[in-house]
Design a protein around this nucleic acid. Structure first.
Lengths: 142, 142
DNA sequence: CTCCTTTTTGATAATAATTATTATCTAGTG
DNA sequence: CACTAGATAATAATTATTATCAAAAAGGAG
């Protein structure tokens, strides 16, 4: 499990300079493991680090994504989310409230890729399962 | 296969009023089956239907999505795309150039959903496979 | 520690996608 | 034809993201 004590090392190993802003952002992502938006990261850090700016958050998470520290995911709500969990994993999302649950696949599904896909070098895949969570099913029962 | 002649019927069956704007948008989606953005839809229709407005496109595709006529998909490029919802299918996308290829799964993968997911009513799922297309592999070879 | 170079930061502006508002218009109904 | 709910167009407002660039900070050499 990732530990906040490792943050400077994580940054160095990724080839990034260690700055308070980066430590704060990485720390936030480690503690709030789940799918934060850029704005959520900014709002939270801003409380204890008032001088941090929005562009720093964007720059930093972009750097993190480039070096593989975080993974960017998007759902249908026009806001990118960032996930410290860089292991391959998948998402179950509620169509109504947006609740997100991670899950894993032991064995990958067998894709039947079409002829046009030949020559494609497959690197990874992501499964997004959609449905209605128990709470929303309850509240929408007529 | 969907036919543009069926458009009024498609709209009625979906419980939507038949208007020229809706016919145009649905017609566009049927003819350009693949993954158009809201702006692409607008730009194209605007040529032959100059009075149509951007918000009508957004409203209309949102309605279409609600009644299941189209499906919204997002990739990492902060623009939603809309797909005539024929049959469940999945996407192979090039990380470099964004090229998109549809593919199908005969049998769904078996998900190993975690305990937190119990009670979730699963409605559908989407697999996004990422990689590098042949053209981009070629051009990036050192 | 101090100087120097390079990188990072923060403030702001710019751009793009999307949503909200509202007056006007229209399809369907009687 | 008149009425009414719903649809459209124009516009403004929001929201997310990127670009610009001067000032500040990091890391290494001496």
């Amino acid at each position: 499990m990732l530990n906040t004590a490792d943050i400077p090392k994580l940054l160095k190993d990724a080839g990034l300079r260690v700055t308070p802003q980066r430590e704060a952002i990485l720390g936030f992502l480690i503690e709030h493991t789940k799918h934060a938006t850029a704005d959520e990261i900014y709002q939270s850090i801003h409380k204890t680090f008032p001088s941090i700016s929005v562009s720093t958050v964007y720059n930093t998470i972009k750097h993190f994504a480039q070096v593989g520290l975080v993974k960017e995911i998007t759902f249908g709500d026009n806001a990118s989310r960032f996930d410290i969990n860089v292991q391959p994993h998948h998402h179950l999302v509620c169509k109504k409230c947006g609740t997100l649950i991670d899950f894993y696949l032991e064995k990958p599904p067998s894709f039947a890729l079409p002829p046009e896909a030949s020559g494609f070098e497959i690197e990874d895949f992501h499964v997004e399962v959609k449905g209605i969570c128990p709470a929303c099913r309850e509240s929408s029962r007529g």
